[in-house]
């Protein structure tokens, strides 16, 4: 498994991945400065900042970015018979798929940490003196990461299926845009997989380990992860290269 991860990482390094990784935190950083709300007395300004920045970041950026990263990780293979070359090596298709997935999840975690840095940077530049709410932030950052598990699995599936970037992005957009409406609904929001990154990063949520109840996490995030991951895994096993 380790050599597969190494080779995937090696291929990605030359794919201009760094500039792509930094777009989101950069956008978050810039947008953080445009928030000009008055902070009410007694409220930690970090909370206000997180509330505003999380909306843009978790609702649109994170779900859409999973698609771009998934496209990048399959880009080499789609060019000039790359799938054939890769799969003639002594590797199993299952391991290749899992390896690509692990690398993607590591990149998403990295983006989440960059975003954490962006939040901290905005607060620092604005001169917040209140203590940084570390516990809440970690809950938010890790929650968003876990909520992206099923989304990444679906996008990896779509990126293996389609040769170009545009078609997976279209699939992604079709599911991501309705999340803007879905998360406003108390009845449907909890069941919509593309709304979960927002709900799990929303710092006004519940008091548990994460901001959403365990049942919702296991059922919606876990369930859709299983469906998408197995779907992609089985599709890749049968794909004609």
């Amino acid at each position: 498994m380790l050599p597969i991860l190494q080779s995937e990482w090696f291929k990605l390094r030359k794919a201009k991945i760094v500039s792509v990784l930094f777009t989101g935190p950069l956008a978050g950083f810039l947008l953080g400065f445009t928030i000009h709300g008055d902070v009410p007395e007694g409220v930690n300004p970090w909370h206000i900042l997180l509330l505003f920045m999380n909306v843009i970041y978790a609702l649109l950026f994170l779900p859409l970015m999973t698609g771009v990263l998934a496209g990048l990780i399959c880009r080499y293979e789609h060019q000039a018979g790359g799938w054939k070359q890769l799969l003639t090596l002594p590797v199993t298709r299952g391991k290749v798929f899992t390896g690509k997935y692990i690398i993607l999840m590591a990149l998403v975690l990295f983006i989440q940490l960059l975003y954490l840095g962006a939040v901290y940077g905005v607060g620092w530049a604005k001169g917040f003196t209140e203590p940084f709410p570390l516990e809440i932030v970690w809950k938010s950052i890790f929650g968003g990461w876990i909520a992206s598990f099923p989304l990444v699995a679906l996008q990896l599936w779509m990126s293996i299926l389609f040769k170009n970037f545009a078609a997976p992005l279209a699939v992604n957009a079709v599911f991501t845009l309705p999340a803007i409406l879905a998360v406003q609904s108390e009845r449907f929001g909890p069941y919509y997989p593309w709304g979960q990154p927002f709900l799990m990063m929303y710092i006004g949520g519940g008091d548990g380990v994460f901001f959403v109840p365990w049942e919702q996490l296991l059922l919606v995030v876990g369930g859709s992860f299983l469906v998408f991951f197995l779907g992609g895994y089985i599709y890749f096993q049968r794909k004609a290269v």
Partner: peptide, 23 residues
Amino acid sequence: RNQGIPVALGVFGVILTYSSYSL
């Protein structure tokens, strides 16, 4: 050649459109 770059630029633009109220 790498379509990841225009697509990432596009995602950046979508975010700006979404938050354009304060821009």
